[in-house]
Simulated assay, not measured.
Amino acid sequence: METPKWNQAELTVGQLATRSGVAVSALHFYERQGLISSRRTAGNQRRYRRDMLRRVALIRIAQRVGIPLADIRDALDELPDGRTPGRRDWEQLSQRWRAELDQRIHRLQQLRDEFSDCIGCGCLSIDRCRLANPHDALGDRGAGPRRLIES
Rank of each mutant, 00 (worst) to 15 (best):
W97S: 10
H106K: 14
N44D: 07
R88Y: 05
A9H: 10
R88V: 11
A70G: 09
Q8R: 05
L35T: 07
A143T: 06
S151V: 13
A75F: 03
L138R: 00
D89P: 05
H135C: 06
Q95K: 14
R54C: 07
R50G: 09
S116M: 05
S125M: 08
D102L: 13
G144K: 01
D74I: 14
T12E: 01
V22G: 01
S38V: 04
D77N: 14
R64K: 09
A42V: 08
N7L: 08
L111M: 10
R54F: 03
A143Q: 13
P4Y: 00
R88Q: 15
R141E: 15
V56D: 01
L76E: 02
M52I: 03
D117S: 15
P4F: 07
D74M: 08
G122C: 00
H135D: 12
D117W: 05
T3L: 14
R64Q: 07
T12Y: 02
E91R: 15
R46H: 04
Q109Y: 05
H135R: 08
K5W: 01
S20Y: 04
R83Q: 15
V13A: 05
S38M: 09
I59Y: 00
A137L: 04
Q92W: 06
R73C: 11
A42D: 11
F29P: 02
T84L: 02
H28V: 04
E114F: 06
R141G: 01
D71L: 14
R47A: 04
L108D: 06
R146S: 03
Q103P: 02
R47T: 01
I59W: 00
H28M: 02
N133C: 05
L148V: 11
S151K: 10
N44G: 01
